[in-house]
């Protein structure tokens, strides 16, 4: 009994699966009839294949369907979302600017120099006697009156001096203050800065979108 080569085994396996050409198949069939060892090997391979084909099939332990989250599918984004996001950014920027302007304004004008009390005018343009008396009383009661804020000013005036005429001794007139205020540059600076920033952001965005479009659809060279 001669020993089979691996080439024989390979051909027997292919013969089982009908993978041999007709001429080769006929030649092998002739050999199988005359060679019991070849026939036994073929039988063994055939049985092994039959057993494998009858391997019990298991049912999947669970369903393997995908959820949108697993598949990484996100709901479509509304078209207006980018506009809203830009609007939010601009609004936030202006809010910060406004807040900054208010704070700076408070620091700049909150400690303004005290103003002299306006004098009620008498006949001929001079101060009246009552008003002079009231002024003296105010001077006597201390400098606090002069440096006090309008609210505290009104609260600290003694009742004795708070005659109807003393109503003329009012906190410093803000109209005079206003006329002397310089133009607040911060009110111009912040909106200007915001406009520059937003403009830059839009320019950058436009440039990136253009670059992306070029990347995904490169121009075809002639």
């Amino acid at each position: 009994m001669k020993t089979l080569t691996f080439h024989d085994i390979e051909r027997l396996s292919a013969f089982l699966d009908g993978q041999l050409r007709q001429a080769e198949k006929t030649r092998l069939e002739t050999r199988i009839k005359s060679d019991p060892e070849l026939a036994a090997t073929l039988d063994g391979l055939h049985q092994a294949r039959s057993i494998l084909r009858r391997t019990p099939k298991r049912r999947a332990p669970r369903n393997f369907t995908l959820t949108p989250k697993m598949a990484g599918i996100r709901p479509p984004v509304p078209r207006a979302v980018p506009v809203f996001s830009w609007a939010s950014a601009v609004a936030a920027l202006f809010f910060i600017c406004t807040l900054g302007t208010n704070l700076l304004g408070q620091f700049s004008f909150g400690a303004a120099a005290p103003m002299m009390a306006a004098q009620p005018m008498g006949v001929g343009g001079g101060p009246s006697d009552e008003s002079l008396a009231a002024t003296e009383a105010a001077v006597d009661s201390g400098n606090a009156y002069l440096t006090a804020t309008p609210e505290t000013y009104a609260m600290t005036i003694p009742e004795a001096t708070a005659t109807p005429d003393t109503r003329l001794v009012q906190p410093p007139e803000t109209s005079q203050e206003k006329t002397r205020q310089p133009v607040n540059l911060w009110l111009v600076f912040w909106p200007g800065l915001a406009a520059v920033l937003v403009g830059s952001a839009l320019l950058i965005r436009w440039a990136s979108i253009r670059a992306f479009r070029r990347k995904i659809s490169p121009r075809q060279k002639p």
């Binding site: 085994i9 390979e10 292919a14 699966d17 391979l45 049985q47 092994a48 294949r49 057993i51 494998l52």
Partner: peptide, 12 residues
């Protein structure tokens, strides 16, 4: 073909 033949032989 080669791997299948070897595998079947060893399985047998």
């Amino acid at each position: 073909k080669s791997r299948l033949a070897r595998a079947r032989l060893r399985l047998r």
